[in-house]
Simulated assay, not measured.
Amino acid sequence: MDNYFESPFRGVTLDRQVTHPNLIVGRYSYYSGYYHGHSFDDCARYLLPDDGADRLIIGSFCSIGTGAAFIMAGNQGHRHDWISTFPFYWMSEEPVFTGAANGYLAAGDTVIGNDVWIGAEAVILPGVRIADGAVIGTRALVTRDVAPYAIVGGNPAKVIRRRFEDRLVALLLDMRWWDWTDDQLRAAMPLLSSGAVEELHRHWIENIRPV
Rank of each mutant, 00 (worst) to 15 (best):
M1S: 15
D2T: 11
N3Y: 12
P8T: 14
F9I: 01
T13F: 02
L14V: 00
T19N: 09
I24Q: 12
Y28C: 12
Y30H: 11
G37H: 08
A44N: 08
D51C: 10
G52R: 08
L56Y: 08
I58H: 02
G59V: 04
G59R: 13
T66H: 13
I71T: 11
Q76W: 01
H78G: 04
W82K: 15
W90E: 13
A100H: 02
N102I: 07
G103I: 00
A106Y: 10
T110I: 12
V111M: 07
V111I: 14
V111W: 01
N114S: 10
W117H: 07
I124R: 05
R129V: 13
I130Q: 00
A131G: 09
G133E: 15
V135A: 03
T138F: 06
L141H: 10
V142T: 12
T143P: 05
R144G: 10
A147D: 15
I151A: 02
A157P: 00
R161Q: 08
E165A: 15
R167P: 01
L171W: 01
L171A: 10
L172S: 08
D174R: 09
D183S: 09
Q184C: 11
A188P: 03
A188G: 06
P190T: 08
L192D: 07
G195I: 09
V197G: 01
E198L: 05
E199K: 00
R202Q: 09
H203D: 11
E206I: 14
E206C: 06
I208W: 06
R209M: 03
P210A: 11
